[in-house]
Every structure is written in C-alpha cells, then in structure tokens.
C-alpha cells in the first residue's frame, strides 16, 4: 500500500509514455520489420542501400553536420559575449535570441523562403543596389541556412549555461597561475564547457538530420533529404512499411550520435544517455 502511494504521482507519466512513446515506437518497429502481408522481412531496412535513399541519407548527414559546425562556431563566441555582460544587459540579449522561437517554426522557415526567392526581398534589395543576385533558394546552402537559423538557439543556450556555471575565480586561478588569455581558454574554459557543447551538438544535429520541413520549403523538390524520403513514403506513397524501415535506420544514426556524446561527456551533464 505504502509502495503504491509512492508510485502514484508517477502513474500518469507512465501511461503517457506507454501510450505516446512506447506503443508508437513498437508500431514503427512492427511496420519496419514486416511487409504488406505481415511477414517478417529486413527489406525495408536494406532499402536504405538503394542509390536514391543512401544519397538522401548521406546528404542529410553532411548538411546537418555542416549546420552543427556552423552553429557551434557562431554560438561559442556569442555565449562568451553574453556571459561577460553584467546584470540585466545579458538577459536582454538572451531574450532577443529566444524571441524568434516564439514564432511558429513553419512560419519562420516560410519567411526565409520569401526572403531568398529569386524575386524575393533580399534579391530586390540587391538589384536595387546593383549588386549580383543571390541564387541560393532550392540549393543545399539554403537548407543549411535554414537549419542554422532555426536551431542556433539550441546551441547557444546550453553553451551559455555551461559558461555561466564556471566560477569566475576558476578563471582567475588560471590567470593567477600564469596562463595567458589563450591558455585560459583552451586549458580551462573550453574543457569545462564540453557538456554544454555536447548537448548543443545533440540538440542541433538530431533535428537537423531528421528535418523535412526545412528541405521542403528551402530546397524545393530538388534537394531530397532522408526526412523527405520518409515523409513521402508515409504521405504520398502510403508505404508505411518502407517509411518505418528507413526511420529505424535514422534512429540508429541518432543513437550513434548519442553514444559518441556520452563517450565525450564522461560526467553525463550534457548528453542524453
């Protein structure tokens, strides 16, 4: 009885996770590992090896990797600047960065489509200034831009948190012991923010890898990512078996990312595993 009471508050969450996480996951595995007649098959998994699918997967991996690296390179200096501001000043800057996240993800990406179009806002301004037009809509570059724009806050915040957690005196101690600014950064600041970097990478890389909205809107139909392939199998081809099979492959890559994160982040502060 006592034991039951202790467990009671967790019950709704248990049912929630069973209903909306465990059961759907089981269904994905069921569809992924069976064919239309319901017999067990690995064909849906192996289908990733077809030229069209593997090309989409590699492109997805490449673009999300590039987007993650760009996010990291942009976020770290930004997070450092945020941390160096005192009092209310930094919360204003953080607020400005969070502000776009209040807007719907689709709308934000749609806005970029309008901006980047051949006759869009940016090109209108460029032609007004007699500058060459920017033709990146429907290219991989536009998709990377969309990924960076949408996922940047997810990189900034964990790094900012990790930096803010460092005691000022730890930095002072390094200087006190003779370290110049570069040595302080590489020997103390950077290693201490590894958990933040890891969690930032995870939070940017995974959604970027699985996105189909960004590539739909900014890549047109010309650039196909693995997310688009899966989406099309479900919506257009109505082949749930193949869509699930490819999803399982994608899950394996996400799992791989998490394992790598866990290895680099020994204290388990930033990674999910």
């Amino acid at each position: 009885m006592n034991n039951f009471r202790k467990k009671l508050p967790g019950t709704p969450y248990f049912f929630w996770s069973v209903l909306f996480i465990i059961i759907p996951l089981c269904m994905v595995f069921y569809y992924g590992l069976t064919d239309k007649s319901g017999a067990f098959t690995l064909e849906n998994i192996i289908a990733i090896a077809t030229r069209e699918h593997s090309k989409a997967l590699w492109l997805s991996l490449l673009l999300s990797l590039i987007a993650t690296v760009i996010c990291l390179l942009l976020s770290y200096p930004l997070a450092m600047i945020l941390c160096s501001r005192k009092g209310g000043q930094h919360s204003v800057i953080v607020f400005i960065f969070i502000l776009p996240m209040w807007m719907n993800f689709l709308l934000r990406t749609l806005a970029w489509q309008t901006l980047l179009e051949k006759t869009g806002v940016i090109n209108s301004i460029l032609s007004f200034l007699h500058l060459p037009a920017l033709n990146i809509i429907n290219t991989p570059q536009a998709i990377v831009l969309g990924m960076v724009y949408n996922f940047l806050p997810f990189m900034v915040l964990p790094i900012y948190n990790a930096l803010a957690k460092i005691d000022e005196n730890v930095i002072n101690a390094a200087r006190d012991l003779g370290a110049n600014p570069a040595q302080v950064f590489f020997k103390v600041t950077l290693p201490l923010t590894v958990p933040g970097i890891i969690s930032g990478i995870t939070m940017v890389f995974i959604p970027a890898l699985t996105t189909f909205v960004i590539s739909n809107l900014l890549g047109g139909s010309k650039v196909l990512l693995i997310g688009n392939v899966v989406e099309q199998e479900f919506t257009q081809a109505s082949n749930w078996h193949l869509g699930s099979g490819l999803s399982i492959v994608l899950m394996l890559f996400i799992l791989l990312n998490m394992i790598v994160s866990a290895i680099f982040d020994k204290d388990g502060e930033g990674s999910v595993l």
Binding site: D167, N169, V170, N172, A173, A174, R175, D176, L177, G178, A179, N180, K187, V188, P191, L192, V194
Partner: peptide, 27 residues
C-alpha cells in the same frame, strides 16, 4: 595576474574540476 610573482588561494577553492589533483597542482 599571469605576470605577477604572487599566487592566490581563493575562497571556494576554485580547483579545475576537469583535471586530477596532480594536474591541478601541475597547472
């Protein structure tokens, strides 16, 4: 500070938590 011939012991130790004790001392 890095050019001064004095060293500081800080209030809350300020050890480098990502290093071993030996690495801290060797810093």
């Amino acid at each position: 500070p890095n050019k001064r011939q004095l060293n500081t012991v800080f209030q809350k130790y300020a050890l480098f938590t990502h290093m071993t004790i030996a690495e801290n001392i060797a810093f």
